[in-house]
Amino acid sequence: MTHSPTEPQLSAAQPPRRTRGLEASRARTAFWLLLPTLIVLALVAGYPLLRTIYLSFTDYNINTDAHPVWAGLSNYWYTTDEGIGLGVLQSPDWWRAVGNTLRFTVSSVVLETLLGLALALVINSKIRGKSMLRTAILVPWAIPTVVSAQMWNWMYNDSFGILSDWGQKLGILGQGQSFISNTDTALWALVAVDVWKTAPFMALLLLAGLQTIPSDMYEAADVDGASKVTQFWRLTLPLLTPALLVALIFRTLDALRVFDMPYVVKGNSPETMTMSIYARQQMFDNAQFGYGSAVSVLIFLIIMLFTVGYITSLRVRFD
């Protein structure tokens, strides 16, 4: 190894013969080091994904059928002679789940970003007890989603929930109603839980971004007589944008595949059914593995579309 670590490209362009032999043997070693990871990833990610894609083109009821039967695109789009659409893309339940998921994603991500930004600014300001505050906000992030879902489930309980009681006293809810039993408010009640659980995560990511802004920039702005509000809009926000975008996209991808929390609170209820809950219901509760796999593939495509958009628009670099 003759090249200095700062200019590897230079030595890579014109390798002397002995280095090239060394390079080849290093490449072989790298292959062996990576092999176990690659085998495991192929086993737990590659194969299951291909299998799901294959199953989405088959008719397969796991309770009654011994083997999947090739069915072409009929799980995605199929109209019977009577004109009834049986494919996923023709199913109102699927589109309702897509609508729920999108509304959930947009509202929870927007609220989380605002609240996370507020938390990050407070923790980053010169107030006392900010390290305590930073520890406190880590706790909602660390607890299991199922636990947070049950904590809120109890507060939303029809007869004994404290939030139902407050809602009824304020006249928002009718007698014996709760925010999750009322079909108009159910989705928003779930958004409140999600914001509670994930705004801290947002705050931590944004805090890391805030701490990279040099403090002398603020001193310069003070000297120039810029108000705190101007400083926020002209200085903090532009410099925070990269961290903000990364955090936003991370949360968007998470929210699009949400399963645990809505499922624990509301089960398979249509008014809060997300795309992932719909897929699992079709596969395991209705035993329709082919149809459910088609739903899974659609979710996968939606999320990959978002991811590719993210990588290209932010020009993420790896090396």
Partner: peptide, 10 residues
């Protein structure tokens, strides 16, 4: 970033 649901069946 694979959604877990995408590999669940497989």
């Amino acid at each position: 970033v694979f959604p877990q649901i995408a590999v669940l069946g497989g």
